[in-house]
Nucleic acid binder design. Structure first.
Ligand code: FES
Ligand code: FES
Lengths: 141, 141
DNA sequence: TCAAAACTTGACCATTTTGGTCAGGTATGT
DNA sequence: ACATACCTGACCAAAATGGTCAAGTTTTGA
């Protein structure tokens, strides 16, 4: 089980963004330099964040990106969903009655994995961007 | 973030094993048939489980595998560790002071991922094979 | 006006991981 | 002796990962 860098970068970039967007839009170039993430890769990520209305873009010189919501209303769940970082612990299709082995009933560990998935998602549901900024400000002092 | 089938199969196979090992050793062939897992693949998995002293092997006709510990002492953590299914959320090396971006300090989201890793591992630490068997017996009634 | 800054889109690709298969063993009970 | 079942290691196709590259379009400020 590992986190992909797409998800990791998305959160990283948004925390960076949230810390600077009070006055001006923040350019991807700046985020790229500060966080050490490839500019081209950031563009892919922000394209998705924009489609999911987590950020707004402002074009032209002095342009950049701005948060589209209150940091408190942006949960990790939303960010991960936007960049297709999904938690997948079961093998079978959830909607179906069939199991992962192709048999007619769910396998003997299905419930376990389901519990695990809920356990992980709970973490993401409860963490907002606001929490992360706060936490980061504290450690900056 | 997804679970690999190596980890999933390992647990599945051990639950199956635990349910039948009271009397005789259980052959991989039987597990393979009951759970729909390739025999060759199971052999790879059990080789690792054996090295980690989670199961014992008994060779020859009527041979098979037997649990090497009390089901209550086999935690999911142990199983996952045995088959190299590890939870990896941070990008950097934990021991090092350096961050994932190559910089001298940990990145702004490092603490978050660390928290997440602990959150997930807690789940694995607290779940034993015994729990799974019980749960399964209940649902079988 | 026009160049530079910055967003936009989509194709492309090398490397690694995954999820196995295959081919040969070796040990042991009957 | 022979069948059963463990044991070992090589091998491999397909998918996912983690990007790069190229070619735009839009807007501002000098
Ligand atoms: S994981 Fe759902 S049936 Fe096996
Ligand atoms: S994840 Fe540890 S420094 Fe970024």
């Amino acid at each position: 089980m590992k986190l992909t860098s797409k998800g990791r970068y998305a959160v990283m970039a948004l925390v960076d963004l949230a810390r600077f967007d009070n006055i001006n839009p923040v350019s991807l170039r700046d985020i790229s330099l500060r966080q050490g993430i490839s500019l081209d890769y950031l563009e892919q990520i922000f394209s998705k964040l924009k489609k999911n209305e987590i950020v707004k873009s402002i074009r032209g010189t002095q342009g950049g990106y701005v948060l589209n919501k209150n940091p408190n209303d942006i949960k990790l769940t939303n960010i991960f969903h936007a960049v297709d970082e999904k938690v997948k612990t079961v093998q079978c299709k959830k909607e179906s009655k069939r199991g992962c082995n192709g048999k007619a009933t769910k396998c003997i560990t299905h419930n376990l994995w389901d519990e695990l998935e809920i356990h992980i998602n709970t973490f993401f549901d409860n963490k907002s961007l606001e929490d992360l900024i706060k936490n980061n400000k504290e450690t900056r002092v």
